[in-house]
C-alpha cells in the first residue's frame, strides 16, 4: 500500500497570528469587528482569512479562482471554495455575512460594478482594497515615459497583467456613489506603507496614496 506524505501540510490555523507581509491586510484586520462572519472574495492562499481567524476570531469563508490556492487553503483548515467573483457571488443569500472583503482583486474582475453590488447585497459591509492608479508614480510613468506603469503593486507589463479594470481613488468614490453605497471609512497608504492622515483631502490621497482601503455599506 502506498504511504501518504503529509509533511508539506500545515495543519494549525489557530496557533499565532502570522506576521502579515501586506500592510493592507493589517488595516483590514483592524477594521473587522471580532467574532463576525466574513467572506473573503479572491482569498488567494488564505493569508487574510488566517490572519482574521487568529486576530479577530472571525467565522471566515473564502472564494478563490485558482484551484491550487483553494487546495492549499482547505489543507490549512480554511473553509474555501473554488469560484469566480464575477460569476459565483449570485449564489450567496442576502445579508448572510457581516463583511465581504475584496482585497487587491477588484481591478482583476470583469465587472467591478456588478461585483461591488453583489458584495453589498451579501454583506452588511463591503471592504475593498485596491492599488490607486492615480498615484504620482503611475501618472509620472505615463507623462514622462509615455509607457503603461509597472510599479510594486502593478508589477506586470500591460499585455501580461490580470488587472483589466484599473481605477483611481476618486474613480472608486464615484463608483460607490453611483451604486448608492455610503463610504463608512477610507484609508490611503503611501509608498512607504504608512497610513496617510485622515484629514487630508481626496485629491491629496489620490496623488500620494499607493493603495486604498474602503469600507462601504448600503
Amino acid at each position: 500500500m502506498s504511504t501518504i506524505d503529509l509533511s508539506g501540510t500545515a495543519t494549525s490555523a489557530t496557533v499565532t497570528a502570522p506576521p502579515s507581509a501586506r500592510v493592507d491586510l493589517d488595516i483590514i484586520a483592524e477594521l473587522v469587528i471580532p467574532g463576525s462572519r466574513v467572506l473573503d472574495v479572491g482569498c488567494g492562499d488564505g493569508s487574510l482569512l488566517q490572519l482574521l481567524e487568529a486576530r479577530r476570531q472571525v467565522d471566515g469563508r473564502g472564494v478563490e479562482l485558482s484551484q491550487a490556492g483553494v487546495n492549499d487553503c482547505v489543507a490549512r483548515g480554511l473553509s474555501v471554495i473554488q469560484g469566480d467573483a464575477d460569476r459565483d457571488l449570485v449564489y450567496y443569500s442576502d445579508q448572510s455575512f457581516d463583511y465581504v472583503i475584496l482585497s487587491q482583486t477588484i481591478q482583476a474582475t470583469r465587472n467591478p460594478r456588478g461585483v461591488l453590488t453583489q458584495m453589498l447585497r451579501i454583506g452588511k459591509r463591503a471592504i475593498v482594497s485596491f492599488p490607486n492608479f492615480g498615484h504620482i508614480a503611475v501618472r509620472a510613468a505615463l507623462m514622462f515615459r509615455g509607457r503603461m506603469p509597472q510599479t510594486k503593486n502593478l508589477p506586470q507589463p500591460w499585455y501580461d497583467s490580470p488587472n483589466i479594470h484599473y481605477c483611481t481613488i476618486r474613480d472608486f468614490v464615484a463608483l460607490a456613489q453611483e451604486i448608492g453605497a455610503e463610504v463608512e471609512t477610507a484609508q490611503a497608504i503611501n509608498a512607504t506603507g504608512q497610513k496617510m492622515a485622515m484629514a487630508m483631502p481626496w485629491s491629496f490621497w489620490n496623488l500620494f496614496g499607493q493603495q486604498a482601503v474602503f469600507v462601504l455599506r448600503k
Binding site: 484551484q67 483553494v70 480554511l78 473553509s79 474555501v80 471554495i81 459565483d88 449564489y91 443569500s93
Partner: peptide, 14 residues
C-alpha cells in the same frame, strides 16, 4: 452553490 445559498459552511476541492 446550494450550500452557499443556505449560508452553510463549505469547502470545495477539485
Amino acid at each position: 452553490h446550494a450550500l452557499n445559498a443556505a449560508a452553510a459552511s463549505v469547502s470545495f476541492v477539485e
